[in-house]
């Protein structure tokens, strides 16, 4: 079931079109990635869906609520991690959480304190709850900002560049937490990122945008296949094998063969699991000793770069 439906969403700032006629649907429980270079319109799209900006035209509905008419209601059911952590540095971690819990209508103090404790413990910040946020590292601030976004148990969570500006270790920690979160909190996540690793590891569906326009939409593997016609199989041999090109060329389903000294790359339009046993059998019968067979899946990075480049060429 689609819980976010955007149709022809457009936002112009003077002469600049930041979001250009975007249409997409996000299903319940999905981790939906908005992938694009800096300035692609990712943050503006999130701000439109969070009712922080008013669209120039187009419509979006969140759980059936219109971003034109039901702004307060939409703010109540969404949590947002903004591009900056947006935390009050002179307040403690607990005070920050408490303020936002009350702002998001958690009026019962007991319920508030239970939820805050639960989240701060999950993010490993409970022991630092009385420390002012100004003393926190970037990674800790980012964790606290995500915890803050979740304080009112929103069914929808917007994460705007959650790992940008973080070192690789903190990025991984945040990525792992988001993965856990999507399962634990059972919320639908819209994640904007320019990091392919985030999109590939976290998202069920990815929309690539550039200059506010949609370039492609699909699961990471669908997007990869969109630009990579062939599946690739990499076979490592103990010793070089003579005439291997002729041997493999005869197999039905093998479209291309690249021969290295002891590494063979086979390209096929068929499913790799279907052709692998036949290929291995032919090599073994020809006297080859197979050390490993690895299917090389085309990466989202390849797809992204190709799609963005193709779009640039068209323009």
């Amino acid at each position: 079931m689609s819980i976010i439906v955007a149709h022809g969403l457009t936002k112009r700032f003077g002469g600049l079109t930041a979001v250009d006629n975007l249409s997409f649907e996000i299903d319940e429980g999905e981790v939906f990635g908005l992938l694009g270079p800096n300035g692609a319109g990712k943050t503006t799209t999130i701000r439109l869906l969070a009712c922080l900006l008013i669209p120039t035209k187009g419509e979006a509905e969140i759980f059936g609520y219109s971003i034109w008419r039901d702004q307060l209601r939409i703010r109540e059911i969404t949590g947002i991690l903004t591009e900056n952590p947006c935390l009050y540095e002179r307040l403690t971690a607990y005070e920050n959480m408490e303020f936002f819990a009350e702002a998001y209508n958690i009026t019962d103090p007991r319920e508030r304190s239970i939820r805050i404790r639960e989240l701060l413990e999950f993010f490993g910040l409970w022991d630092r709850r009385h420390d002012k946020v100004g003393k926190f590292s970037k990674g800790m601030k980012q964790k606290l900002a995500i915890a803050r976004a979740l304080v009112h148990r929103p069914p929808i969570l917007y994460l705007d560049e959650p790992t940008s500006d973080l070192d690789p270790e903190s990025s991984k920690a945040i990525r792992d937490l988001i993965k856990k979160l999507s399962e634990r909190e059972q919320c639908t996540i819209l994640l904007s990122t320019h990091r392919l690793e985030d999109a590939e590891k976290l998202c069920n569906k990815v929309m690539i945008i550039k200059e506010g326009r949609r370039i492609a939409l699909g699961s990471p593997s669908q997007l990869s296949m969109m630009v990579n016609e062939y599946n690739i199989l990499e076979i490592r041999l103990r010793h070089p094998l003579n005439k291997v090109e002729d041997i493999l060329g005869e197999i039905n389903g093998v479209d291309r063969v690249e021969i290295g000294k002891t590494v063979i790359r086979v390209e096929t339009k068929r499913d790799v699991e279907e052709v692998t046993p036949t290929i291995v059998r032919h090599i073994v019968e020809a006297g080859g000793e197979v050390l490993s067979v690895t299917p090389i899946r085309p990466s989202l990075e390849d797809a992204y770069l190709k799609l963005v480049k193709e779009d640039g060429d068209k323009a």
């Binding site: 009712c51 903004t82 947006c86």
Partner: peptide, 14 residues
């Protein structure tokens, strides 16, 4: 200036 306003504006406070 301290870039804290976006999260505040995103809350259901009119």
């Amino acid at each position: 200036e301290r870039k804290t306003i976006e999260a505040l504006l995103a809350t259901p406070i009119s």
